[in-house]
Amino acid sequence: MKKEKQSGMTFIVKTITNLIIGFMLVFGAYIVLYGHITPGGGFPGGVMIALAYILVTLAYGRRVVESMISGVTGSIADDIGALVILILGFIGLYIGGTFLFNFLPKGTPFKLFSAGYIIIYNLAIMLKVGMSLYIVFLALAILQRVVTTRDETKEDKK
């Protein structure tokens, strides 16, 4: 019984997760890439991508999702996202004289490649937000497990 509990939820949940996980990731990527012309951007898209991984965690358990993206990898990806934003800022400082100056050509409005560096910026935010949320969830799941195992040992002693 306990082993089954470790490996996640029921067959129905797992099947549904398999079906919708691809759509979630694609929709998240769409929201990120079109963030500068339609409502959306790096933050909502990143949250959707993080939610996809959180769904996998809920359905299959922590082990499976950690074999896909481990905590350390997620943390490094998260840091790289932050670093890219800072580097964009520094390049703007070097080229335009102000921090976060938009140094790329603006293009025509309502085209995919327009609005200068916003698209790179959104991608970096996606990396940052998505991975941070995923790591926060993972960390809370680990903490939660510690608490429940402590409670079980307490009850055993009684």
Partner: peptide, 20 residues
């Protein structure tokens, strides 16, 4: 909202640790 999310995550983590 982003700031609130950060505070909330910290609060929840701290609540779990306090329970521990």
């Amino acid at each position: 909202i982003v700031i609130g999310l950060g505070t909330l995550a910290l609060m929840v983590a701290m609540a779990i640790r306090l329970y521990e």
